[in-house]
Design a protein around this nucleic acid. Sequence first.
DNA 1: CTGTTAGCGCATTCAC
DNA 2: GTGAATGCGCTAACAG
Lengths: 347, 347
Amino acid sequence: MSKGRVTVIDIAHAAGVSKSTVSLVLQGSSLVNEATRAKVNAVIRDLGYVYNRSAANLRQAKSKIIGIVVNDLTNSFFAELAVGVDVVVQSAGYVQFLSNTGENIDRQREVVASMREHGISGLIVSPARGTEAGDLKPLVNSGIPVVVVVRNIPGAKVSSLVSDNHAGSAAAVEHLVSLGHRRIAFLGGFPDTAVFAERIDGYRQAMQRAGLDADGDLVVGSAPSRAGGVAAIERAMLIATRPTAALCFNDAVAFGVCDGLRTLKLEPGRDFAVVGFDDVIEAQTAVPALTTVSVDPQGMGRRAAQLLLKQINAGKVEAETLVSSVRLVVRQSCGAGLGDVGRRITA
Amino acid sequence: MSKGRVTVIDIAHAAGVSKSTVSLVLQGSSLVNEATRAKVNAVIRDLGYVYNRSAANLRQAKSKIIGIVVNDLTNSFFAELAVGVDVVVQSAGYVQFLSNTGENIDRQREVVASMREHGISGLIVSPARGTEAGDLKPLVNSGIPVVVVVRNIPGAKVSSLVSDNHAGSAAAVEHLVSLGHRRIAFLGGFPDTAVFAERIDGYRQAMQRAGLDADGDLVVGSAPSRAGGVAAIERAMLIATRPTAALCFNDAVAFGVCDGLRTLKLEPGRDFAVVGFDDVIEAQTAVPALTTVSVDPQGMGRRAAQLLLKQINAGKVEAETLVSSVRLVVRQSCGAGLGDVGRRITA
DNA sequence: CTGTTAGCGCATTCAC
DNA sequence: GTGAATGCGCTAACAG
């Protein structure tokens, strides 16, 4: 915003019409004569007029901006997500505020507040770890549509878009079965979360369909972390009839499982098949990557944005939960029908 | 912006003071009585008042928002860059509009225009390929500070922050020379860009200093892409006295060169030394990473943001060109004095 | 079809 | 210290 900014009144003056007429051509209204419209447009070009959206927004009490906050833009999963959002947001004529929280919940609170002050008309958030329903409360109470992606936040009355955990688990199991595995473990995760319930359910059903035993010792819960993965595989290997493969609650657990296997002098992929779950992509390059149940981050971003725009246009906000389909990404098969492991490929 | 939004006048009414008083406490002015200030703050909290920045911006003819447009957010180099920008922008009390152009120049024009309409007080842009000085002209003419990063755009009177291409090339050559190489090629890139000129210049000078021949067939241009790299190495290996090492225009080319070498039954790093240039980090994990001339993208982002904020605060815009230092990152030496290759480590 | 009038929510003079 | 006016640039009603 420069000093000598030219305004509607200037161009109205120069074109010999009134401001409202100018306003009308600005909005592409058909209520204005073709001749005057041309005249006005010409003057607009000549004077180098730029539309002031702040003023318009103030007047209309609505903005054409949506906010997106992600927990870790450094992680290419979320960068892709942001790109997906950007694509549909841009083509809908919106611009996006983007903020990175770096898993810092205070920062998240700040940026959300800031965005609110700026009058965003909607928010897409991939919440930082530990986000609670209360953190989004003020936003949703003021009627601003919010879409939570990737991680759902229990108790919040907002729309969310998460991956198809059930189908993902099932696909992983079917894959392992097709490789000849019969003792397939499910490792990691806390049983008291919705995500866990969905994943374990998909696992159980697929096992059952394959005529395999899914109960008992094959399911070993743990913290959904790398350390948890180590603990889980150690426990699982104490079973009399050891598993030969494992579906892990998420990638972090999978990496821990690999760590644990190596401690046991077993090579992941050769001696034991490990499948990860793309909930949290962690340290992609620091460990040998594996076959995973993957989601399409950019597609998720697009879908989230579409959902948000729908709600913005609808005026009415109804919490809605969408499920994003997943696909099994097999990295590299290493013979012997015993699992697979390979290099991670960035989508 | 909801329907029943509470405004300063509401809280003034409820607190029994005037709007201006409220405005003053909002700005933390010391011209207001402690008691009334407390009272006002209490009412603000109670009524759930949210500050309307659009209105404030309109009044003050300035905003607290900066724009950042990148050519490819999918590329983690630029994602990191955006994170760096975000960090300093946030702590300076600004919010950022982020847009991804995907190298699409029309899109870039659109988003820049949109940001202008929104009254950004500054712009950081990593321009799409083919961006011309004219594309930024309207912005700079209206006095809005612009900082161009990564790629400079010739002829534009804006500040820019680029990496030290000259020194980077030289360092790479010296490194290869110290490993015993004497036939060192420069592969990839289009000769008609400023970046190419700088890199080739650093290469030539370093070669000369080492008493080596840098002319003739050792310089092979190509598209700055993976495919271009394949073509370049194939052509380079047709020379009578083959090179034993190559400095590549960028990482994409370097990866292509590795591909090409393997086709020729040569193992990059063992049989032929390859050094990349961190212009575009591509598919970090999909290929064996190599020694590169690296910049710190996040650091560049921070620096760009600082430069921009300085200019915003200074009021006066003076085009300034900053050079970001680079460092040679040697991944792993693999004996025989013939190059080196290793795992890429994310910063 | 076009002009007139009246604010949107805030910050900035000035008086008091 | 505080209150009363005034205007930022624009759009939404009506008039004409």
